[in-house]
Design a protein around this nucleic acid. Sequence first.
DNA 1: CTTGACCCTGACGCTGCGTCAACCCTCCAT
DNA 2: ATGGAGGGTTGACGCAGCGTCAGGGTCAAG
Lengths: 259, 259
Amino acid sequence: MLTIGQLAAYAGVTVRAVRHYHQIGLLPEPERDASGYRRYGATAVVSLIKIRTLANAGVPLSEIGRLLGADDSTFAEAIERIDGHLRDEIGRLETSRKQIAQLTAGDSLVLPVEVTCYLDRLRQIGASPRMVEGERDGWILIAARWPDRIREWMPAKLAELDNPQVVRLYRLISEILDSDAADDPRLEEVADIMAALAEQAFAAGDPDPGDETHDDLPFDLLDALAVEYDPRARRLRDLMRQRGWARWTRLERLTDPPD
Amino acid sequence: MLTIGQLAAYAGVTVRAVRHYHQIGLLPEPERDASGYRRYGATAVVSLIKIRTLANAGVPLSEIGRLLGADDSTFAEAIERIDGHLRDEIGRLETSRKQIAQLTAGDSLVLPVEVTCYLDRLRQIGASPRMVEGERDGWILIAARWPDRIREWMPAKLAELDNPQVVRLYRLISEILDSDAADDPRLEEVADIMAALAEQAFAAGDPDPGDETHDDLPFDLLDALAVEYDPRARRLRDLMRQRGWARWTRLERLTDPPD
DNA sequence: CTTGACCCTGACGCTGCGTCAACCCTCCAT
DNA sequence: ATGGAGGGTTGACGCAGCGTCAGGGTCAAG
């Protein structure tokens, strides 16, 4: 007659596990000796080994009970099912591994490589870290909404950075972000440049992604994001409204005369 | 300003998940509106997307908080560690899959193929199902103790089944098991055969695995197993003792004259 | 007699939420 | 004005498979 510790040691499991199997009815409670200790016979050892074998094979405890009493075809069927679960699980973990393999720190955390290139380029032309951070978060919002289409849009965005006006714009905004002036006069210049650029784009007949997707939410979020990053964005938005433009952050759109 | 449902939808998670992230402090609680509803801004959306990205990559929630605020090298280090965990997990599941692939129903559940062959052979020579079942469970106990060495022992055991005396022995025991007689007279014959076989083996100088391993517990368990399977085994053991043999089940051993 | 190694029951903890319950808020159609 | 649908709120339990106390009692040995 074995104590629970000896039983567990023989089967290579912990005492707690054995008690757990009792609790869930997987292994029957044995007789107790005079002092209330559980006393196990050889059949208990055999049962426990069978249980552990199935459990080690990844069979959930809840299935093991039925499985041990099942006939061969039921058993094979159940094995089939469990193998399916395991395959799924492995697949999930492997996609996880691929994902985290791509998670280098910084920008590429959530963004496709095209966007991180764009952000790097922004740094090159003199955008401040804070500016780039804001841009990155904006692109995160965009990427969440259109994960597939975002790659199409990047080449055009990247090309824009060759435009000296755009470069000047980003530098200006960077400077403003880094200053503490509550109402920076340079905001007017920023608005002028943005309006001019919007005018050019409109004249060139650029396709407006907002029209295609017909989903304002991401752009509302972009506006809100800018304001959360720097409250002076609100003032900039007003200046843009005066110039006949709304949704200034990512993509511009002609509107009726404001107010 | 978004409600919790809109926030969750944008990031592709459930409302419950968002509340969970609040609870564990991963996502800060936002302001409430007049009626107590949570109201989220754009930065919350960005944070939630970052969280989900890491979580989808298999990063435990408890790590995500630190990771989002970590510098690049800390981040890379953590990623390394998490990838290690994932690899381990995948490895475990894959061994599980291999294991259950080998789990055909019946005998081979816990036993190596050599043993199941032996059991099949037992059936061929006329051992009853009940007898074979008992043998199988005995081998399970052995296999649990010496999982590596058991393969060495099987050829000899298999060869034994060519001995007509051994065949007669198994058939006799099968018959007794299938009968209900409380004290079957054939037990005497069983004991005679077993004693004779033991004598031969001893004379041939068979190595006694019990001596090598110096671990009596498995053999005690085998004895106990037999008794639990059929109480008449106790009588058989006494008969064997009278003939100068102990530990009758698996391997015999000479002892001092009994009692 | 003490000490250390076991045994007992009962209960919480872990992970990442799903799923009630019981109630409040808002908006839209009647 | 009202009622119902479809949001939102907190609080709580449940899941798998045990690990890990807490607060006892028991056994074998020195």
